[in-house]
Amino acid sequence: MNPYLPREAEIVERIQETPTVFTLRLRLTDGQPYGFEAGQFNMLYLHGVGEVPISIVAGGEADGLLTHTIRAVGRVTRGMMALRAGERIGLRGPFGRGWPLAAAEGREVVVVTGGLGCAPSVSIIHHILRHRERYGRLTILQGVKHADDLIWRTQYEAWSRQPEVRVLLVADVASPGWQGAVGRVTALFDRIELDAAHAIAMLCGPEGMMLASAAALEQLGLAAGDIYLSMERNMQCAVGHCGHCQFGARFVCRDGPVFAWPDIRDLLGVRGF
């Protein structure tokens, strides 16, 4: 198997979430099966421009479509935002190690996300809701810089109506009609009850937010080894060869992107790593 060779994927549906965030729902045209674990990512290829690593929001459901939610920030993603349904891109994956969903069984789960960090975490929520009886209470904390950055409002509302699910939203800057809290995501930790001895936390977002959240969760009594973080670094090959994503000895693309907090806490927050 050639780990570098993309497969062709057709854009079946395209959703503009915010002026800079869009979702592509993709169908692999080769008809071959595709499986992934929550928290893994794909490399998406725009013809003539290049590849980008994008987390997998959802896939493998009844319609067989793969969902990616993308922010237009670079050459590839800006070009991809201009694509329409029916157009084709390249896709290879899945890559990396995902969320510890097996280890989380029988426990209370806290999902803490910031900004578009919500995208790599949706698969956790989907998995837990599909296998509701295997997990305890689910708490979802999502923070955004500006209230208008929040995507999937109706999705959060729907999740909050599920049994044993709490959703708390927070924005640094509120806008008219904002019903969530105002401030940083860490401000929400005062407002949740947690059975810390039986909880596991999964974090995804800016590093400052993850550092502050991991510290706050430890304060609440969570064991460091029960806190998991999804990391982001420059990734080009996705198989631990190109060297860009190295974080100390770890290749984020292959050994991560999800890491247990004790495995990366020595370097996380050190400028330049």
Partner: peptide, 10 residues
């Protein structure tokens, strides 16, 4: 040293 960059040449 093994680092390498990928590039697309249309």
């Amino acid at each position: 040293c093994f680092c390498h960059a990928e590039q697309d040449l249309p």
